[in-house]
Structures are given as C-alpha cells and as structure tokens.
Design a protein around this nucleic acid. Structure first.
Lengths: 211, 211, 211, 211
DNA sequence: TATGAATGAGTTTTCATTCAT
DNA sequence: TATGAATGAAAACTCATTCAT
C-alpha cells in the first residue's frame, strides 16, 4: 500500500503549492492510513470521527485536509483503481497472454481487497475522473481477455465483462459468513476460477453475453 | 419466499406459550416479507420505518413484534440459511453427486442474493442459534464436496471450505464497479466456477488447505 | 399573533389528512410559538435546539414536524406576509385613502416586528410561493400609494417603493444601539414618518425614483 | 474610512507601553480595514478567517493583534461611533441648527451603514468604553434636537430619542424584503423623514416621550 | 514574530427505539 | 393492541480559538 499515491496526494495538496509542514504531512499520511484500515476493518461506512480518532487527530483536522468524507473515500478508491490499471498495463506487456492475465488477476484481488466496500458506499455517484478511470479499466479488461482468447488460452465463450465480475466477486468474498477468509483462501479460490477460465472444452456459458 | 417461514415463528417465541392472535401473526408475516423485499431492493441498511411502512403497519407494531431491527435481520438471515440447508440436504440425496452439487450451487447464489448485505451489516455478531446453523451448513458443504470428490467429479485438491467461499463471493459480486451485473451475469460466473471445480488435471491449489 | 395561520398549518399538516393527535397539535403550536419568540429575542439565527428547548420538546420532535429549520422560518415569514397582505386589502377598502394607508402602516410595523430578521437569514432564497406573495404585496403598496396621491393626501414625488422601504426600516429599528425601543418608540417614529409623507409643499425627493 | 483610526490604537493598548513595531502596526491597520470591508460586504458574521485572508495575514496574526473576533467588531463599532460623534460636534457648530441637524443625519446613515449589523451581532454586550461613547452621543443628539427646536426648525413634540431611533432605522433598512435598496433609496427615505421632523403643525406624537 | 495546522464545541439533520394515546 | 409521536445519541460538517513550527 503506497500512501503517497496520486489521488490522495492531490486531495491533500496545498493549494498554494508550497511544501506542506512536517506535522501536516504526517497527519495527512496518518489520516489516509487510518481511513484505509478503518475501511478494511469496519467497511466504507466508517465515520469521520472514527477515522480521525484512529489517526490520532481531532475531527477538525480531518476536515481541514479533506473536503468531505466521501471525497476521501473517492480519492482512495481512485488510487487503488490507478494501481490496478498500472498492473493491467504491465500484464498486457507480458509476452505470454495467459501468464499476464493470471498474474493480473492476483494483483487485482490483492489491491482491491481493502477498498472493497467503497464503491458500494459511493453508490454510483462517482465523478468524472473516476468514470474516466473505469472506462480505461474496461478497455484493459477487454484487451486482456481478447488477447488470451486469440492465443487459445481462455475459453472462447467468455465475455470480457465476466472477468471483472469474477474478480470483484472474489474480492468481496473476504468475509464469508461463518468462515474467516485468509490470504490463502482467496488465492485458492482464484486458482479454481482461473482453471475455469481456460477450460478447453467448456459447456457453453448460459444466457446472453453482457452488452 | 415463504412468508410462513420460521422467522415468523421465532418472533413468537413467547415464554407464556399462548396462541398468538390471528392479526398479530399476520402482522409478523407482513413484516418479515416486507423486510426481505426491502433488504433485497435497498440493502441491509433499510430503516425500521421503511420496513414498517412497506408492511403497512406502524413503527410501534414493528417494535412490538421485533426486539430490534438487528434481530429481524438475524431472523431473516437464519431463514435464508435454513433454506440453504434444506437445499443442501436435497442435493445430498441426488444420486449424481456432481449434479447435486452444481444444482445446489445455483440455488445457494439465488437464495443468498437477496439477503446479501445482512451478514456484513451484522458484523459478525451472530448469536448462538446462528452459530449452530452455520455449523450444520459447514457439515453439508463438507459432505457435498467429499462425496463429489470420491465420485471423481471434483478436483481432489479442493478443500470443502473453498466451496462456501466461492459461492459467497459470487453472491456479493452483484454490483461490480462500473458494470451492472444482472441475473445472467452470475449464472455465467457460476458456470466458469463450476468448470474450475471439476478440472480433471488441475495445477495444485496454492497454500495450505484451510483448517 | 395567530399561531393557527396557514403556511405554518400547511407545514405541520398531516400528509394523510387525518386529524392530528392532541399532543402532536400541542407540540406543533408550542414549536411555532417558541420559534417566533426565539426569533424575536435572539434573531433569525436561533438554533433548532434553542427553539426545541424553548418549546419543551426534543430535537427529534422538531424535525418530525418540520423538514428543516429554514422551512420553519419561511413558513413563519409567509404567514406574517399573508397577514400584511390582508391588512393591505382592508386598507384599500377604506373610503379614506389616507386613513387606510396610515392604519396599514401601523399594522405593518406591528406584524413585521417579530419576524424582522427572517428575511435576512433566508438571504434571498425565498421559494416560489414567497415570491408570489411578495409580488402581490408590491401591488398593494403601489395601489395604496397611488390612491392616496390621487386623493392629494400623499406628496406626489413619493415613489411607491419608498413606502415598503420606510416601513421596513422602522420595523428593524427596534433595537437601536444604546436605546431600548419600546412600543411607543416606533409609534412615535411612525407618526413622524407619516407626517413626512403628506407634507404639502415638500422639497423634491433626491435621486431618481426607484425602478 | 481612515485606516489609522483609533481602533488600531486601541488594539495596541499594551500594558508595557512600548512602541509597537512598524510591521505589527501595519498588520493591525490592515486587519481593521479588511474587517470593515468584510462587514460592509458580507455582514457582521464575517468569519475571522475571512477577515484575516482579506487582510493578507494568517489567522495567527489576527489573534496576536485581536483578543477575539467580537473585540474587533466592538473596536470598529467604537470607531464608527467616534466618527459619528465628531460629525455631531461639527453639526453643533453650524450656525443654522436645521442645516446642521439635517447634514448630520445624512452623515450618520452613511457612516453607520457599513457597520450596520455589528450592534446586533454583539447582542447588547457592549463594554464600558462603548457605554461611555454612547452616553456622549446621546448628549449630542439631545443638543442637536433641542437647539433645532428652540430655533423653531423641528416640531416641538419630538423627543430627542426619536432622532437616533429614526436614523438607526433608516440605516438598517438597506435590504428591504423584495426590493433592492440602493443609495438613492435611503436618501429619499431620509428626505421624507426630515420633512416629518419639521412639520410645522404636527399632530401630537403618540405615547409618552421615552425616558 | 508570523504562520497556518490543530482543536473541539456547536450546528443541522437522521434514525433506532420508547412511550403516550 | 396498534399507532405514530417523542426522544436523544450520533453523523457530517463549520468555525472561533490555541499552539507548534
């Protein structure tokens, strides 16, 4: 987890463009770290007070750095999605399409895990920048799937939309009721899933491919 | 959805043991039905007022029937899990282990879908009765997986815990960020997943099997 | 002061159209009375808690009856303006134009006094209904002035806009710095003002008449 | 507006009696000027940050110079009242009592206009110094009125307290509901009012003269 | 000394829950 | 018993004021 990533940096940037004071910078970092932790632990409805308290600062400091709780969530989500896009771009450079895709899948789940509930909490009110990012991500997903299919590594009946759906599913499965899902758990699940993706003679997928 | 389900019964766990009045019972049934609908539509944070209004009763009646909003969520969750247990029991009676398991998987996702957010909302505070139910479910999962493995229908390296994890994942994946997941979406995902489960010569699953 | 006046009634009306419960009605009346008093005493920035406390109810009750603090202010203002419009209509029926106008002037100041700060607090965001009411009031002012001028009772160089301006001024002058303005004070001021309005041979008013 | 006014001096009422540094004095002047402007533009609830920003200094400097936001408001009010006192003294030197009084009235409204909301914001908590100033002002008002009455220029039934009341009223009438009052507006209103003051054969003013 | 970061009480508003009718 | 009115703790957010740099 890189707390110096861009959307959050932009959020905390001094409008005057000067170097922020040492304590300000420290508190900003603490706030982001606390927010990510709180979100991972108690979900995206972690309150501003909760986050501020975890960061060891007053609520006033929270709102000095951040225009709103939602803005902080969005910035964190944006950063995570940026990381994922970067991972997708690297995967597309892999000479082995299947190796690229499967490696990306693992990165996706690892990166997305902690910020899992944010997108639900934002409820679709994403903002232009996030929309652009999502559009770019969709492009990468389509390319990754198509390329692997052309190489014969992925079942031809798979729609590219199935991939983000399955990966997102895995991501949100962390807290399975009655089971505590650990790191190994999702890695095992991912393997099953990947094996399902490359089945050589699959039964045709049901329903219409998503538009 | 059966409005005469056991959640209603449990709402009448009356120490005096008297027969409840007919209209009281009807109100309880309405409340449970309204709650399930509300949760399916607007999530587990549907307000008590919302549920009462949908049931056509006052908030006072709500709290006469239900000790707390959380208790109602728990009762509904219990009902859903009961139905899933029943589906598992039926699946275990299927002479074809694979057919039983794969049919159960579809039922699981369908049943669990509507009550999806409840377990998150409850945040692990489950209560004894729920724990018992979960233990029984775990037994069924283990039996389903073991039986299918012994029949050679499921990869031998699969741990039984992988199945609830994967099914729960699919269940919560309904709203993938930037995509609108419909009925077809999870059916397609489930097919991929099932294909992954029965891979004949799989690469060994990573990590240790969950304890 | 009539606490049963229409805009406030509309605000507190039960959407189902039924007769409100006795305690609800009592609390509604208390809230309006408390709000008017609080506004008169500490200004339009009286807090919702303050108003609720003065009414002897919890903050929750305040917000059960009222969509927002601002809505309550607006409803009170609307009622006062309605009263003023009624007073203007009566004044226009007076066979003696000057008698009608001067009586109206006194009513205006008396009615407007207590709600004095509200319009400032609303800051121009008035709402359509209020705008309509204001337009109607402007009509009355124009008629009152014109009629009195045609009867030779008011100086011909007076613009009708001067009248609401002067009356509003008198209204807000209640708390003159260093003087506690009582009832007599504004009555005396009003007399001076009225004498200024009917000066037979006035020096021409300066500036352009307002548009 | 004189930025070297006594409010600045008073902000340096330093028990040690040392000469303030040049830049400190410049900051104090800036703060007072900015505060007057801010209050004139956005009212007496202009925030401390707003004033500091307009003065081009940090909030820390604000509070180094000023014990509290309220104290600054009071100091400014004092300055305005001082200027008004000076205007009154000049008016008393005018050989024509009516000319003096009417000229003073215009000055009063002009001077008081910008600081209009301050006295409300202070809510009566004035402080000793302000009380003294107000007492002095009351003397001037009494003299101005008495002198003009003795010269036969002002109606004999006018109480001197009526004058500050009427002028203060005009001052606060700037934003009449539904009308935008401009400079001309209050000049026209003032003319009406002055005409009312010198009415030769007025009906007796109602009520008892204020004590 | 000047700065602006940090603070927390106070404001508006929501909602789970209790209680009078 | 059914109702919905009343309640108050809690959430997001603001701003006067203090304090570390």
């Amino acid at each position: 987890m890189d707390t110096h990533s861009s959307a959050v940096d932009r959020l905390f940037a001094d409008p005057t463009g000067r170097q922020p004071r040492a304590d300000a910078r420290r508190n900003a970092e603490r706030l982001v770290a606390a927010a990510r932790l709180a979100i991972a632990e108690i979900g995206a409805d972690a309150s501003a007070h909760e986050i501020a308290a975890r960061a060891g600062v007053g609520i006033g400091t929270f709102y000095r750095r951040v225009p709103s709780r939602e803005a902080l969530l969005m910035a964190i989500l944006e950063d995570v999605l940026s990381e994922i896009r970067r991972a997708a771009d690297e995967a597309l450079l892999d000479p082995d399409p299947w190796h690229g895709l499967s490696g990306f899948a693992a990165e996706y789940v690892g990166l997305r895990g902690e910020s899992c509930g944010i997108s639900d909490a934002l409820g679709g009110a994403c903002g232009e920048r996030l929309d652009d990012l999502l559009a770019e991500l969709r492009d990468r997903f389509r390319l990754l799937v198509t390329r692997a299919q052309e190489a014969g590594a992925v079942r031809p009946d798979l729609a590219w939309q199935d991939l983000p759906f399955l990966l997102a599913s895995l991501t949100t499965g962390h807290r399975t009721l009655g089971l505590t899902a650990d790191e190994d758990q999702w890695r095992r699940g991912l393997r099953v899933l990947l094996d399902g993706l490359r089945t050589p003679e699959p039964a045709p997928l049901p329903g219409h491919p998503p538009h």
